[in-house]
Nucleic acid binder design. Structure first.
Lengths: 196, 196
DNA sequence: ATTCCTTTTTGATAAATATCAAAGGGTTTG
DNA sequence: CAAACCCTTTGATATTTATCAAAAAGGAAT
């Protein structure tokens, strides 16, 4: 068993995927998986690219963002044992409208989704995994919508502190503020209020 | 070919599903599909139920909503040839936290997702359909997030008018306002401003 | 039409958030 | 060390949005 299989197994154990994957499947999957290290602030994916890559984060912190009317808007943070991708591009086959960058020195596993079709594996199994990934993602998005739709800026910040406390320390104020749908000045003031 | 098959075929043709379904598949699917009419303001699904139903709307308008801190919050509208469901409950198998109601006299096809497992069909095919439904849904949610995260109330309203103009006429002000994440007083004023 | 009920609009005011400009605090770099 | 840079904080003000209360406008039933 090679290093990449090992890392994949670790990922599957830690992540919310409830699947038991057999050795054969893992061996096949590891064939199309690469392991890479990137320094802080590296842009892995850029607007306008056709991006079918799935990044599984073994170490570090990544961010997906877009330019909405010229402004840099954070769409998503992804920590150790999360994955991140331009799902829009994977689904539609069109050029991505997002960027993905590292916010820290990071180590990732990269899987080209299109390569999965070439594997000698049970296609049903990979469909089921895809289904589970989509399900998890969906639950995240629904919560995010409810929060943006109804909660005050203060509440949204408090929820982020409660649910993803390390992001507060590891990302910049502006990146967090845009993720929460507010200006960085407002977030700065909220943060001060909460501290006291 | 019975009436339900007919309706299913129509749905598949009109909706964004890019699938060609063979007769066998349709015949099987129609076995577990029922057709029902409901008068306006009927609650089809209630918080606390285990709900595995998928509603395909042939006529009318439905709304999914939840009680968030006591307030009625619209999560989704669904028109003719949309589908609507408590996807949370389907995914997690837990009790739903949402309600689904008709806003007009409506006609729907109902499929119990759990029944699909019993069908004598190519399971790969049904996985692929599920995948496509999830993909479409995902794209909707991403747009919704971007809008709630960045746009002003005025812009959110304008986008709704542009993208789902009939909802403006068919749902009540309060239902639309909560969907857009604002108070109904604010929406009332915005609407007046836009008219002039 | 009259009553009753619900929804929408309006008004006055308060609170939340954005904007713009400048100052402060670090860190890196020459 | 000073200069340059980036990020964060602070201040003053404007804008947006929410809140609360009441009036107006529609609909449905009698």
């Amino acid at each position: 068993m090679n290093k990449i299989s090992q890392l994949l197994i670790e990922y599957l154990r830690v992540s919310s995927i409830s699947f038991e994957l057999d050795e054969h499947f893992l061996r096949e999957l590891s064939k199309i998986t690469t392991f890479k290290k990137y320094p802080k602030n590296t842009v892995l994916v850029q607007e306008g690219e056709y991006c079918q890559s799935l990044f599984i984060i073994k170490k570090g912190l990544l961010r997906r963002y877009t330019l909405h009317e010229g402004k840099d808007i954070t769409l998503e943070f992804a920590l150790e044992d999360d994955f991140i991708a331009s799902i829009y591009s994977i689904i539609t086959g069109r050029k991505t409208v997002d960027f993905i960058q590292t916010l820290e020195d990071s180590e990732v596993l990269i899987i080209q989704v299109e390569d999965m079709k070439k594997l000698n594996i049970d296609s049903q199994k990979s469909l089921l995994i895809g289904q589970e990934l989509r399900n998890n993602y969906f639950l995240k998005l629904e919560n995010r919508i409810l929060s943006l739709q109804n909660d005050s800026a203060k509440k949204r910040y408090a929820d982020l502190v409660a649910n993803q406390p390390t992001i507060i320390q590891r990302a910049s104020l502006g990146q967090i503020a845009s993720y929460l749908g507010m200006t960085q000045e407002n977030l700065s003031r909220i943060r001060r209020m909460v501290k006291d």
